[in-house]
């Protein structure tokens, strides 16, 4: 991945979102997502154990942490893809703890996946159309009668083409998604999520496996989401990206939130440095044998950048 990924436009940082000290679990002025006492264990290993967490509205929040910190697990829990052992959380004031994933998505909280889930044997256009909400023709009985859904379908197609044009995928609209490159699939997945006009977009490692040539436009797209009034929560390893576009950073380690705050402040936090350096190598066996080294690299990168 390129080390010089910088958004084309200088991002406008949102500041002053929190109330009081920027400590783990601090209150936000206008939280969109509020998490309380969520825990999840896998065979004795506590993957997630979050006491209290608030995600600010209208901002880009990064969720970072070393491998195995429980970031993706927390993502899965918050989006209904996994069930917690304990805990509850609210989205826009509505309790959605334990709610099925599809209902969470319908409420306006959509996610993407670390390993892109472009639907390979559907065309790019079909992928997009699948994202649209409340489609009449998705009911089996109405599906038989095209006149009921044709108009809505045409409307959705216009919207999809518009989004595809923005993501520079409009020329590919009739190709199978399987024929796209890794980066294009990431873009498609994001564009597809936008078809439902979400209020909170949750991106799981949006930069992973993306060709450097495309990272630029991906960053711009994420910033655009904020500009259009959406809130963004993303998991990322790339510190440059985090620092450049995130308004707020939440750091997890061993399932807990160990720090949060402004990106530049957080990077200097001792707890964060400990979390990255103090990780036991052997515990991670099986996930990524090079994790330790990578993390050391990440910290170095961080410190270099600060100078």
């Amino acid at each position: 991945m390129s080390n010089n990924t910088v958004p084309t436009a200088k991002p406008v940082k949102t500041v002053g979102m929190h109330i009081g000290e920027a400590v783990p679990g601090c209150k936000k002025k206008d939280p969109i997502l509020v998490v309380d006492g969520v825990s999840r264990t896998f065979g004795g290993l506590k993957a997630v154990d979050v006491e209290h967490l608030e995600i600010p509205r209208g901002a880009i929040t990064a969720l970072i942490g070393p491998n195995g910190a429980g970031k993706t697990t927390l993502f899965n829990l918050l989006t209904g893809f996994d069930k917690p052992d304990t805990g509850s959380w609210t989205f826009e004031g509505t309790s959605i703890g334990g709610m099925a994933a599809f209902k969470v998505a319908r409420m306006g909280q959509v996610r993407t996946f670390q390993l892109t889930k472009a639907l390979g044997l559907l065309t790019v256009m079909d992928n997009m159309l699948l994202g649209a909400k409340a489609q009449v023709g998705e009911n089996l009985f109405r599906a038989v009668l095209p006149f009921l859904w044709r108009q809505q379908e045409a409307h959705n197609k216009v919207k999809a083409l518009d989004l595809l044009a923005r993501f520079k995928l409009d020329t590919k609209k009739d190709d199978y998604a399987a024929s796209l490159s890794g980066g294009q699939r990431k873009l498609l997945e994001m564009a597809r999520a936008l078809m439902s006009d979400p209020t909170l977009v949750m991106l799981d490692e949006p930069m992973a496996g993306v060709n450097p040539a495309l990272t630029q436009s991906l960053l711009d797209h994420i910033l655009n989401l904020k500009a259009e009034g959406m809130s963004v929560l993303f998991v990322e390893h790339d510190m440059h990206m985090v620092r450049h576009i995130a308004d707020w950073v939440i750091v997890m380690a061993e399932g807990k939130v160990v720090a949060e705050g402004d990106p530049h402040e957080v990077m200097r936090n001792q707890a964060v440095i400990d979390a990255y350096l103090g990780q036991h190598h052997d515990e991670d066996l099986g996930e990524d044998p090079d994790a330790g080294q990578q993390n050391v690299g990440a910290i170095k990168e961080l410190l270099d950048d600060e100078l």
Binding site: A100, A101, A105, L130, S196
Partner: peptide
């Protein structure tokens, strides 16, 4: 899972 994430039951 992708379809579920798009709000379909």
């Amino acid at each position: 899972d992708a379809v579920r994430a798009l709000g379909k039951n």
